[in-house]
């Protein structure tokens, strides 16, 4: 199995390290041709405006949309979530795939960044360390979107829509491999020739 990591900018190497620890081959994606033969794609943390500018200039927007629409799993963390979203409340290039309204820098500036324990659907065995860095939140979700995690005040910070997964926090900055393992399982199940992916 091969999972791509969008490598335009951001902490893509941290995602590659997590995949390597799971014994999965990671492929850096900067150009459309690098999407070929991948079983899934992770879009990392970083600056979503930078992702958008570079994706437009190097012709990645439509190929990324087509990749997700082919049913292969795509997971966005932080800036990756913003890049997946339909509505980010401002004029900014995104893939517009996930039916969510996202608010950028929702907690404030860097001094408002924080770490807290999270309860995530599917990872009930123990709390997950949530690292929020100038993080966005999901303000509202469409009908097809399942909420996977809320903060204590009810704010949505993780969600899923069919083959799309989004987290406002950074599992790749922790030692906890469970989110990556879960995503890899979904990629494994949905890869061609395997039984259809059930949720």
């Amino acid at each position: 199995m091969r999972i791509g990591v969008l490598a335009l900018q951001g902490d893509f190497i941290e995602h590659e390290h997590m995949l390597a620890r799971l014994g999965i081959e990671a492929v850096e994606v900067r150009l459309p041709r690098e999407l070929e033969g991948l079983d899934g794609l992770i879009m990392p943390g970083g600056e979503s405006t930078t992702f958008g500018k570079l994706a437009v200039r190097f012709g990645l927007v439509e190929p990324l949309r087509a990749f997700a629409q082919s049913g292969r799993p795509v997971w966005g963390t932080c800036a990756g979530l913003i890049f997946l979203a339909k509505d980010v409340g401002r004029d900014q290039v995104t893939l517009g795939l996930m039916d969510v309204r996202v608010k950028r820098n929702a907690f404030g500036r860097q001094i408002d960044s924080f770490i807290c324990d999270l309860q995530i659907v599917g990872l009930e065995d123990k709390p997950f360390p949530g690292v929020f860095i100038r993080a966005p939140i999901i303000e509202s979700v469409g009908e097809r979107v399942h909420t996977l995690c809320r903060l204590e005040d009810g704010t949505i910070v993780a969600a899923r829509q069919d083959n799309l997964l989004a987290t406002a926090f950074h599992p790749e900055l922790t030692d906890d491999l469970r989110m990556h393992a879960l995503f890899a399982q979904v990629c494994e199940r949905s890869s061609p020739g395997r039984v259809a992916y059930e949720t």
Binding site: Q9, G10, E47, Q110
Partner: peptide, 15 residues
């Protein structure tokens, strides 16, 4: 925390 301070720099990488 150090993790958060170093973490923001990690988000800037490749940029």
């Amino acid at each position: 925390t150090d993790e958060l301070k170093r973490g923001l720099a990690q988000m800037l990488k490749g940029g």
